[in-house]
Computed example of a mutant assay.
Amino acid sequence: MSLILSMKTLSLKLFTYLMLTLLVAGVSAFFPQTSLAAKSGSEEKLKHAMELKNDFKDEEALKAFEEVLEEDEQHFEALWNAVILHTSIGNRQSRSRDEEAHYEQAHELAKKMLEAYPDSAASHFAYSAAVGRKAQSAGARERLRLSTEIREHAEKAVELDPEYSRAWNVLGVWHHRAANLSRMERLAANALFGGAPEGASNDSAREAFKKAIELDPQYVLYYHDQAEFYLTIGEEDKARQSLEKGLQQEILTSDDERWKDNMREMLDDL
């Protein structure tokens, strides 16, 4: 029984953290600019959707991006933003039914984006984000399998675009959590699922977080995740520095204030 409970702890600990980082990591668009031939009026609708998103009106922005997709179902920017907004809005739902509905939509749109743009770093990041959220409602064995898929797509994103900061942050979180499982969690993973995630290391986590911040030093979440990592490995002074630097950044996404609240609590506990 303790082994099964430990496995549940493993799955929830690794995947909840991964999913929160993957999906709520800000909905400001960060992707290579791709020019697409849009149907009449879709670009005006896209402009309106972006304005709503920048005003943190996520639900309204999502509807506007979906209107763009009604005219052009392969519109790059609309697909990317719709995926990320579905995952972010889904995470805020109080009812699991509503939450899962958003995640399912995100997954379907991410598959469509990946199929249409397989050589885009943004496509692979969006897909890993959508898969991550969907994994939350899957069984433990499936969640562990999807952990590998999340990592693979994040790595593909940085392979295609070494300056894609969001994917570097995802890799930092993945290495952080996977490299620091407890002994009991590792035993449970080995016994029930053929082993814990392989190839994770604190050195890789350290470098990935550093890379993400170097590329985009304005994102609050990157400092939050880096600070959590430093706390895990006992480097409290560096954690404090990350938190203080992150709190100095401007609010850029709908979720930044929530991350800042978490960071203030972390500072109080130091």
Rank of each mutant, 00 (worst) to 15 (best):
91 N>F: 15
153 H>N: 10
31 F>Y: 13
132 G>P: 09
186 R>I: 08
267 L>F: 09
62 L>C: 08
247 L>K: 05
173 V>M: 11
267 L>G: 11
187 L>P: 02
41 G>I: 03
215 L>G: 11
148 T>A: 15
13 K>R: 13
7 M>W: 06
154 A>N: 09
1 M>F: 12
56 F>A: 09
10 L>I: 00
180 N>A: 10
13 K>T: 11
25 A>R: 05
176 H>Y: 12
230 Y>S: 08
5 L>M: 09
230 Y>H: 14
199 G>P: 10
54 N>Y: 08
1 M>N: 12
187 L>Y: 12
213 I>Y: 03
69 L>E: 03
176 H>G: 01
211 K>E: 02
189 A>Q: 03
219 Y>D: 07
239 A>Y: 04
80 W>I: 10
238 K>M: 14
226 Q>I: 03
147 S>M: 14
206 R>T: 10
9 T>Q: 14
26 G>L: 02
191 A>R: 13
18 L>H: 09
110 A>C: 05
266 M>D: 05
224 H>W: 13
153 H>A: 04
6 S>E: 15
166 R>A: 07
135 A>N: 08
107 H>G: 04
189 A>I: 06
63 K>D: 14
142 E>I: 11
234 G>T: 07
270 L>Q: 10
69 L>S: 06
262 N>C: 12
173 V>K: 00
104 E>Y: 03
230 Y>F: 15
172 G>V: 05
259 W>Q: 08
37 A>H: 08
195 G>N: 06
11 S>P: 05
116 A>F: 10
81 N>G: 07
71 E>I: 05
237 D>L: 11
91 N>G: 15
214 E>F: 01
177 R>K: 15
83 V>H: 04
157 A>Y: 04
188 A>H: 09
44 E>Q: 13
138 A>E: 15
81 N>K: 04
190 N>H: 13
139 G>W: 05
125 F>C: 09
209 F>P: 07
38 A>G: 02
37 A>S: 12
26 G>K: 03
17 Y>R: 14
72 D>V: 05
226 Q>H: 12
153 H>I: 01
12 L>N: 11
79 L>R: 08
65 F>W: 02
72 D>M: 00
224 H>V: 02
249 Q>T: 01
40 S>D: 13
133 R>Y: 12
88 S>A: 14
73 E>A: 00
